[in-house]
């Protein structure tokens, strides 16, 4: 459970940029505006001693107007507090990189770019982290198919003899 002082300090400093404060399963979640995201994270790092970036990721909500949530999980090594910062990002919108605040953000931003196609400004080493450099599509978007495209060059199963080919199906439900 997060100290209320942190939320108060955030609200005092950033006022309306703090959209919502909630809690789920004992984790504190703070929804903020994208415009002041970098400032808020910098403030948390330098003034409130949240010096450890656990992870940075995104979640895809295709039905929303701004379809992505970008999520930062921070921890303070001094007080052991944890806080989760969320901001909404629409498709094609760029996010300012936090690699100048946390070195470990470089890898996570590469991965988020790779999986969701969210571009990060000022990240010098932004590239595909896990997929090949020339991969098309962003795998963790909800519309991305679970199995390969039969007509793609990359779909190697099509070179198999007729009998051995797998039927393309989606994962079964129990």
């Amino acid at each position: 459970m997060l100290d209320a002082k942190v939320i108060d300090a955030l609200k005092e400093k950033f006022g309306e940029d703090i959209v919502n404060v909630s809690e789920s399963c004992g984790d504190s979640i703070v929804n903020v505006n994208l415009d002041s995201l970098h400032d808020i994270l910098g403030f948390l790092h330098s003034n409130l001693s949240f010096d450890y970036l656990l992870f940075l990721t995104a979640a895809d909500y295709p039905k929303r107007e701004k379809r992505f949530d970008i999520i930062y999980q921070l921890r303070s090594t001094a007080t052991f507090d944890e806080i989760r910062i969320k901001a909404e990002v629409s498709d094609g919108e760029d996010v300012e990189s936090v690699s100048d605040i946390w070195g470990s953000a470089i890898g996570d931003e590469c991965e988020t770019y790779d999986m969701f196609g969210i571009k990060f400004l000022n990240n010098a080493e932004l590239r595909r982290a896990l997929m090949p450099d020339d991969w098309e599509g962003y795998p963790l978007r909800k519309e991305y198919p679970l199995k390969g495209n039969e007509f793609s060059d990359r779909y190697l199963d099509k070179y198999l003899p007729e009998g051995q080919r797998h039927q393309i199906t989606h994962t079964r439900m129990p």
């Binding site: 010096d51 946390w102 470990s104």
Partner: peptide, 8 residues
């Protein structure tokens, strides 16, 4: 300091 910054 660097170890924390790099998420080690």
């Amino acid at each position: 300091e660097d170890a924390i910054n790099w998420g080690i």
